[in-house]
Design a protein around this nucleic acid. Sequence first.
DNA 1: CTGAAAGCGCTTACAG
DNA 2: CTGAAAGCGCTTACAG
Lengths: 359, 359
Amino acid sequence: MATIKEIASEAGVSISTVSYVLNHPDRTDKASKETRERIFETARKYRYKPNAMGRGLRTGRSFTVGILGQLGLYDSNIGNTIYGASEVLRSAGYNLELTQTGRMWQLNDRIPLAADHDSPAQYRRKLAEAVDRLLTRGVDGILLAEVVTEQNIDLFQDLAERIPMVKVFAPSGCPEIPSVYVDPAEIGVLAAQHLWESGHRHVLVLGGRAGTEANILDFWKNAGNEKQVRRIPDCRTFDDGRAVLHRILQEMPEVTGVLAYNDNNAAGILYEAQTLGIRIPEQLSVIGVNNIELSERIYPRLTTVELPAIRQGEAAGELLIALMKGKTVTDSILSPRLIRRESSGTARMTGNLTMEKKK
Amino acid sequence: MATIKEIASEAGVSISTVSYVLNHPDRTDKASKETRERIFETARKYRYKPNAMGRGLRTGRSFTVGILGQLGLYDSNIGNTIYGASEVLRSAGYNLELTQTGRMWQLNDRIPLAADHDSPAQYRRKLAEAVDRLLTRGVDGILLAEVVTEQNIDLFQDLAERIPMVKVFAPSGCPEIPSVYVDPAEIGVLAAQHLWESGHRHVLVLGGRAGTEANILDFWKNAGNEKQVRRIPDCRTFDDGRAVLHRILQEMPEVTGVLAYNDNNAAGILYEAQTLGIRIPEQLSVIGVNNIELSERIYPRLTTVELPAIRQGEAAGELLIALMKGKTVTDSILSPRLIRRESSGTARMTGNLTMEKKK
DNA sequence: CTGAAAGCGCTTACAG
DNA sequence: CTGAAAGCGCTTACAG
């Protein structure tokens, strides 16, 4: 690569002039028109690009954003989110650097996650290493895709004091770190409304936040007494979904509709329904959350509450850019959208859920 | 962050000594034991980490690898591949920087790709911009995940002359750029063997390379005359798969087995089979290629030829590290693996494929 | 055994 | 309108 020195000597001016002219192409007051033209032309001829390390060392800004996370959280669709963030950041001149903390990159619960399998001490050490890498590199900002827990929040708070940081996918849980996420209340409301309108009165919620079932019941408060919402908190993987269908049959056959806070979890129910000969949605309605690719490629296609993945990335990028400019920002809370497909329909009228033997 | 200067003054030595001792912790000949201890301790106390830009500027090495690509190629499972590469590169001290060229990050044919939708001129401009970014940043090596075509190969060849580069997912098509990929012949052989053993004699191939059908026939040459392999080259998306099932019914009902060079494509066939009431695998065997997450979450679960995604990333990282050390390397050609699931079975005995009306 | 000096490529006051 | 100088943080011969 040509350096500023070569451009300067080739154009017959000093490096200060080259630097100034190239960095302020529209300021006419600092160099004569001829000089400026000469510099532009020489730079073009040698395909001069300023060296990022030289510039960074001098200005103290790297124009790099690090993305810190144990990537691969169930179905968070993180690839699309990174895509959204990367487009926004690049438009503003920032590059994106990966800083993996854990076991897995992509949404995929086939491969174990570090947080699930490392000991707490190991996990914390990996996290601290990742933080060190970020510090060494001198990134200007950080996108936090890691799950924030009581065990690691101190690390992130320390870091956020030195470098602008934005949490994505969920509230950070501390005021110093602004966050991008989809309004959890709205997710419940969209699903509850859809189920209620289709006549569902006995609903099972899988995963989600504590209190979700209360929220839904509250939303249904104007309705009669014939309604019930139950919840199984620790149910999120595909295999969990398969297993839960058996529990429904045995323990709560009155359920007509299921809201799974995770498309993969919902997919497990659909899979098991096929093996058991239970017809979806005629016998049981299933709603997922996220709208991952899978959800429109299984049979029947999954009704789901879409969490905008790309948009979350864009919003996180925008927030971080504002933060790096020194602005104060507030959380960016996005809205979900109901996508009606074939896995949900009118509640069955005929008593309890039963298995028909498959033909 | 503490700088070397602060450590030096705190430890009462010069910065040269600090730098030397910290970079050669095991060399005892250059500083007294006491001095060394003092430096180590001070560095630990201030959590000193050398500034990557300062070091990079001086040494001419950034310890950063750029990944260049229009990420999101159908089902290439690129997230896992990046994960594999990132682990290997990090162990060797390298960071990974994203350099997107196109529209989409993640495997997903729901969102259009730049190469499909930009004009050739636009696309080339985006690519050139991405190359410029890589040059500006001074990356030490490049992972090329872009599809190499006649239209863009010159750009990559130019770049490979300046910076070590490794192509992943397919042969680069030029000797200057070593590549990592799965042996395409082996993919065909694994599928052909499986189909043959299950009694399939009329097979349809979707996608893949030109000549695949000839290869399979060649592999079957010792068998009798009753065999036929056809191929539809331009068939790769989920919707393509849905459509092709209708073509099979109408134009080639003698087909008993389908080999789709793409799991999403195969998933489309399974989906359409369900809507038409065609039983898989009893009436038609379907084999995919890749083993993406989807393939074990649809019903019936998909038999597929697995292309090792993480391993491809690891191999690419290893190749690139060797290249950056100045070694000469050769292509790394990996082997696929057949994963038997429920979408394939014994060839049906009863004449042509027909639709049964769904109950 | 230790330190002073040069220099990587750049930007930014400052001087003229 | 233009240039000389300082300095960002580091490493590496070189001198002592």
